[in-house]
Nucleic acid binder design. Structure first.
Ligand SMILES: [Mn+2]
Ligand SMILES: [Mn+2]
Ligand SMILES: [Zn+2]
Ligand SMILES: [Zn+2]
Lengths: 141, 141
DNA sequence: TATTGACTGATAATGATTATCATTATATCT
DNA sequence: AGATATAATGATAATCATTATCAGTCAATA
């Protein structure tokens, strides 16, 4: 009889329960539909009067990634954007103007499952992005 | 009758011929089998006594990307690595130890051609990478 | 050859991320 | 519970790849 039902969600080993700050960071990501940078997340929390240290924001995101809960991609300006792993979004990005258009579905879901089995590697998420020129930029030549 | 055979390689418009520095950067990438950072490329050229300014290295790489000749990906430390677009390499990367294992072939070549036609977007290259835990790191739990 | 605009390189500025370290919270004992 | 060891936090400083600046140089064209 489980007294603490939350335990069911975790592996048998001494998987450390998430700290208050780590849960806060996770909640922000859950409420957001879009990837967000660590800096923005930090500022968002300050405005909400739920401030946590900037270093802790970075550390929490790292922990959550290692748990397989959070993923990151790096935008044009070299800034990391974080989101839940279940957000599985991919983009066409223009090298000239930087505009990103999302694809309407993930083309490699199946491939990931396939790889998962062949390789001795636990896959948490993937990144896939196409780069080139959008129509307007291509016309300028 | 073409007097200058090199012209055949370029589009009709006034595609500016590459400058000496831009050609130097391109040559380094051609001789290398591995992606290289702008900083390393800069140092390599210094040792070769073919020095060009660091800013020019960055600018040249940008020009070459816009020409569809060069691609970049961002490594674990947030540093951009550059290579020729024809190098079509993808990795499994461990979130804990950072070790990257290359895949032995590109799983999305066909997909790229398919997208190219449907979308009004000129695709130069793509990035695809899988993240998770390698066996040793997964065992440590 | 003079004019014009693009390219270069030295250097300074930027800004996201990481390192440091004293403090605080949490877990593990007796 | 109280004592002790261990991990997490937050303020701040340090790092370092990249970008901005700007004066000087090169290259094309008339
Ligand atoms: Mn996907
Ligand atoms: Mn590929
Ligand atoms: Zn564009
Ligand atoms: Zn590993």
């Amino acid at each position: 009889m489980s007294v603490d039902s939350d335990d069911c969600l975790h592996k048998s080993r001494q998987m450390p329960r998430l700290t208050r700050q780590q849960r806060t960071v996770l909640e922000v990501l859950q409420q957001l539909a879009q990837p967000i940078s660590a800096q923005s997340l930090y500022k968002t929390l300050r405005q909400d009067h739920r401030s946590i240290g900037l270093a802790t924001v970075y550390r929490s995101l790292e922990v959550l990634k290692l748990q397989g809960l959070v993923q990151s991609r790096i935008n044009r300006q070299g800034e990391s954007l974080y989101s839940l792993v279940q957000q599985d979004q991919h983009y066409l990005t223009c090298l000239k103007c930087g505009q990103s258009t999302p694809l309407d579905s993930c083309p490699v879901k199946h491939l990931e499952r396939q790889l998962q089995q062949s390789a001795s590697f636990t896959i948490y998420y993937h990144s896939l992005e196409f780069f080139g020129l959008c129509q307007p930029c291509a016309l300028l030549d």
